[in-house]
């Protein structure tokens, strides 16, 4: 004989991931490390932006990049070539990174730490990565001009869950039917608090403006702790 028992729950399916993510945020935060999670479609210019920006940031800060990729070491190699430390996290075909994958690299992360900034370059995909907290302090979503202006309503969660939107490759604006104000309006409809910057690797000022926003965000976070 057996009996049936009813159990009433309200348990988040991402509970385990979120638990690990919070542990990462606390552990790295306690070392003064500001963690940035970069989300975008493939080809929006995440790696190129990091290549241009991080050697500048590195003049005053200790910087590490975690590269999420399906299979290859290519992106990590590109980052290393410009003199910035990079660890490759291959997902073995999975479409997103999960917090435990960051936790598994603690030893490697902390070996030459502590770091002032850790950048996690997520797998190129605007859907799945949006659901997974990786322990970041700032989530930055990139949207490049050639991708088109309709991305925010198509991928609402990616924009809703981000602190910052970078409209990248703005040097190409004249060639595309891409209204920056329209994108800003749609993004703010999804996340009223989102900070929006325009970048192009052709303009040092635009890169510097992004770095300024990161330095300020880090300072603000650790000043209040």
């Amino acid at each position: 004989m057996s009996e049936l028992r009813q159990v009433h729950l309200k348990e988040n399916l991402l509970k385990a991931n979120d638990f690990v993510a919070n542990a990462i945020r606390e552990r790295l935060g306690a070392q003064g490390t500001f963690v940035v999670n970069l989300l975008s479609s493939p080809g929006s210019g995440k790696t190129t932006l990091l290549e241009k920006a991080l050697p500048r940031l590195q003049k005053d800060f200790r910087v590490l990049v975690l590269e999420g990729d399906l299979e290859t070491e290519r992106d990590a190699e590109r980052i290393r070539k410009v003199g910035v430390r990079a660890l490759q996290l291959t997902t073995g075909g999975a479409c997103h990174l999960e917090a435990h994958q960051i936790q598994q690299t603690y030893d490697q992360i902390e070996k030459d730490g502590p770091w002032d900034f850790v950048f996690i370059e997520n797998v190129g995909n605007l859907v799945c990565p949006a659901s997974y907290d990786l322990g970041e302090h700032m989530r930055t979503v990139l949207l490049s001009v050639p991708e088109g202006e309709d991305k925010p309503p198509k991928y609402p969660k990616a924009f809703h869950s981000s602190h910052q939107l970078l409209i990248t490759k703005v040097d190409l604006l004249e060639h595309f039917d891409f209204r920056v104000e329209e994108v800003e309006r749609m993004a703010r409809e999804l996340q009223p608090e989102i900070e929006i910057l325009q970048t192009t690797t052709k303009s040092e000022e635009s890169i510097e403006a992004w770095l300024d926003s990161l330095r300020t965000a880090r300072e603000r976070l650790f000043a209040s702790n």
Binding site: M1, L4, R5, V7, L9, E11, L13
Partner: peptide, 14 residues
């Protein structure tokens, strides 16, 4: 994204 009510089959203790 929640797990709500669960029904379990439990062997009778007796």
């Amino acid at each position: 994204l929640l797990l709500r009510n669960v029904e379990l089959e439990i062997d009778d203790v007796s």
